[in-house]
Simulated assay, not measured.
Amino acid sequence: MTPLLLFLRSREVPGGLLCAVPAMALFAWFGAVQADPRHAVTSAALALALGVAVLGYGLGGPDATLDATAAIRWAPRRALHLVSTAVLAGTVVTVVTTAPAGVVLRDAVGFTGLAALAATLFGRRLAWTLPVVTGCVSAGIPAVPEPFALHLLTWAGQPPDSVAALTTAVAFAVTGVAAYVIRGPRRIS
């Protein structure tokens, strides 16, 4: 087997794809069939949170100690894995939803950063926590501009012209990607 196939198998990516892609498509489709465009944005955010959460399980291998001691450079592989996750999730949801592509891209990048941050802080088994909690909060609380703290908390459901939502998503992405690429998933003993 090639090194790429071995890497994908060790991260359980094929199984994650079989679950994540149909789930994202279904959630995004639920919002696309609604008349209100806000439902499309909310459904797209939930679809992305769910898909990135499922794919986030693959951000570490079954043996974190082996990953840490291997004689290969992990940083490029980790970065490529995160980029692939964001691109896949964004593409699937963009194809199905009627939400603006800018919102989908913003949310895909932000949720991927959150999954990477969660994998770094809590380990690969809990990489789903931050994207799911953020997605549910954004879906459960209406997107309002005031108070500002609530506006930041519901960044994933904000309209496409929200600078604060874009800044929050980019901050999560940069922080999560940097932490994950440099440190990798947390080793749970």
Rank of each mutant, 00 (worst) to 15 (best):
D63E: 13
A23M: 14
I188R: 13
A49I: 08
T94K: 08
V163S: 09
V33R: 12
A35S: 13
R78K: 08
A99V: 02
T65A: 15
R187Y: 07
R9M: 08
A169G: 14
A149Y: 10
T98C: 03
A25L: 05
L150D: 02
G157F: 04
T98I: 04
L59M: 14
A40Q: 05
L150K: 02
L46S: 07
V177E: 02
A70Y: 05
R125N: 11
A20L: 01
L48S: 02
T134S: 13
S43H: 06
G16Y: 07
A70P: 08
T97Q: 02
L82I: 03
T85W: 10
V144C: 04
T91M: 11
F27H: 00
A118Q: 02
R106I: 01
C19V: 15
V41L: 13
A32W: 04
L18A: 15
I141Y: 11
A25M: 04
P142N: 06
D36N: 13
I188V: 15
V41S: 11
L121P: 11
I141Q: 11
A64W: 01
A68Q: 10
G123R: 04
S189G: 14
V133G: 12
A47H: 01
L59S: 02
R183F: 12
A108V: 07
D161K: 00
A70F: 05
V109I: 14
V33E: 14
L153W: 08
G135F: 10
A75D: 13
T91I: 08
L150F: 02
D161E: 15
G58V: 09
I72G: 09
G56T: 05
V96R: 01
V52R: 05
G15N: 10
A156T: 02
P37T: 04
G110Q: 09
L6H: 11
F30R: 09
L126T: 10
P3S: 12
S43E: 03
W155A: 14
G61K: 00
Y180R: 01
I182V: 14
W29Q: 13
D67P: 10
L166N: 01
A178C: 11
T168I: 07
G135Y: 09
M1R: 12
A71P: 15
A119L: 01
D67K: 09
P62M: 10
T98Q: 09
G102P: 00
T98W: 03
G51S: 00
P160Q: 11
T94M: 14
V54R: 01
T168D: 00
G61C: 06
V144S: 10
V95N: 10
V87Q: 04
S43A: 15
I72V: 15
T167D: 09
R186F: 10
L166M: 08
G102R: 02
S84Q: 00
A49T: 04
L8K: 03
G31V: 01
A143E: 03
A45V: 00
P131H: 12
G102F: 08
S189T: 14
Q158V: 05
L114E: 12
L59C: 02
R78A: 15
G184Y: 08
V33Q: 14
A164S: 15
L130D: 11
L105W: 06
L114A: 14
S43C: 11
G31W: 05
A115W: 12
G58M: 08
P3V: 03
A139R: 00
S43W: 07
